[in-house]
Amino acid sequence: MSRLDVPAAEDIPAGSRQILEGVGAQLGFVPEMFKVIASNPAVLEVVTSLPGALSRVLDARTRHSIALSVSEANGCDYCLAMHTYVSSEFGGMSDEDIALGRAGSSVDPKRAAAAGFAHRLVDSRGRVTDEDLAGVRAAGYTDPQILAIIAVAVQALLTNFINNVNQTGIDIPAAQAAEPAKVRNAGL
């Protein structure tokens, strides 16, 4: 049950309607999270525009791996379900890679470094060590790309916090409990 108000269709602010239509067209439905956020067009715009901006710096599977890692670290069931669904249905990620992403890793060594770094960001509240930075750089990430990893992690944190505060009901296939994934190529 939503703890924040979900506006009735007729009460959705005009600034949110077009954004919700775009989300619905992209995903085939409008997830509950977006319906909640629709009460504030500025927040909805931030949440929906960040992925496009960040796609110019990091590929989709890397962004998905980061979002999975961050959502697992924050215990956001809604975001885990959403990112699992999107990673599988639109990102072409395997079940193994999704499980590894949740564990802060990946089947791809470079992506594993990004997901592991994102996990360290959350665990350390942004106070990563010199070794953490050296590890992500050694995997081939430049400082501008490290800034993008941080931005993707913060984007995931934003939606994690919204959904954890709201206790948003899961209206997409629920993520299964993370099975112990063999963490390989963590890089960190």
Rank of each mutant, 00 (worst) to 15 (best):
G104Y: 09
A138N: 10
F117G: 04
F90D: 05
H83R: 13
A138F: 07
F34V: 05
I12E: 04
A53E: 06
R184T: 14
Y78N: 05
A14K: 05
V36G: 05
N185S: 06
E96Q: 14
R127P: 01
K182F: 03
T48G: 11
A113I: 06
N160G: 02
T159V: 07
S94M: 07
A174T: 09
S124V: 02
G15C: 06
V165Y: 14
V183G: 09
F29M: 12
E89A: 15
Q176E: 15
S65T: 03
R111K: 12
A42D: 14
Y78S: 08
V70G: 12
P173Y: 12
V122C: 06
F90M: 15
P51I: 01
C79P: 15
A113F: 10
A148N: 05
L147K: 00
D77C: 02
E89G: 02
M93K: 02
A151K: 02
I170K: 03
N74P: 00
D130F: 13
G22L: 07
L80E: 10
G28H: 10
I172L: 15
V86F: 14
P180C: 00
H83Y: 15
L80R: 13
A174S: 13
S105H: 06
T159Y: 03
G92S: 06
I12K: 02
Y141E: 08
V136Y: 12
G52H: 11
D95Y: 01
R184L: 15
R17W: 09
D143V: 00
Q26D: 11
L158H: 06
N160W: 07
K35T: 04
D130W: 04
A139E: 12
F161R: 00
C79I: 06
G116P: 11
I150N: 04
P109E: 14
K110I: 07
A181L: 13
D108R: 10
V128A: 14
L121Y: 12
D59N: 15
G91K: 07
L158G: 08
A103N: 02
V128W: 11
T129A: 10
R63P: 01
G101H: 05
F29T: 11
A114F: 13
S71P: 05
N160S: 04
H83P: 02
A178S: 13
C79G: 08
S65F: 02
A8I: 00
V57L: 12
C79L: 05
D95N: 03
P31V: 02
G116D: 10
